[in-house]
């Protein structure tokens, strides 16, 4: 097969779906996150990591990726208004924080994500 259906890093083969979302969240590592980010043309900065880590914690607790407005609300609560800002989140993840950040965080595609 010529199309890429898995990420490969340090001998780890992590399968993903046609949009790039990991099939097994258990295979996620920070190194893999960097690789997924690169395929999304994103260079991970501490600000990116803050969002990705937040998403992973939210998923661990509730078994869902939050909708963008919930992400904004909860980020505001946790990190303050500057971080909990939709514009700032889109600046970090131009194709949508829910979509791109979730992919990098190893989460499934968010429910109802458009």
């Amino acid at each position: 097969m010529s199309t890429m259906t898995a990420y490969e890093i340090n001998g780890l083969v992590a399968e993903h779906d046609e949009e790039g979302y990991l099939k097994d969240i258990g295979q996620w590592t920070p190194e893999l996150a960097e690789l997924i980010a690169k395929s999304e043309q994103i260079d991970m900065t501490p600000d990116h990591w803050e969002v990705v880590n937040f998403l992973r914690e939210y998923y661990e607790e509730y078994q869902i990726a939050p909708a963008v407005r919930i992400l904004v609300k909860e980020m505001t609560k946790k990190f303050g208004k500057e971080k909990g800002d939709q514009k700032a989140l889109y600046a970090l993840f131009p194709y949508g924080p829910a979509k791109q950040a979730c992919k990098i965080a190893g989460l499934p595609k968010p429910t109802g994500c458009v």
Binding site: Y58, E61, Y62, Q63, I64, P66, A67, I70, K73, E74
Partner: peptide
């Protein structure tokens, strides 16, 4: 199967 019972606790956020 996924334990989606945890998700009911997120409903307050929504």
């Amino acid at each position: 199967m996924k334990n989606f019972s945890k998700t009911y606790r997120a409903l307050g956020d929504y």
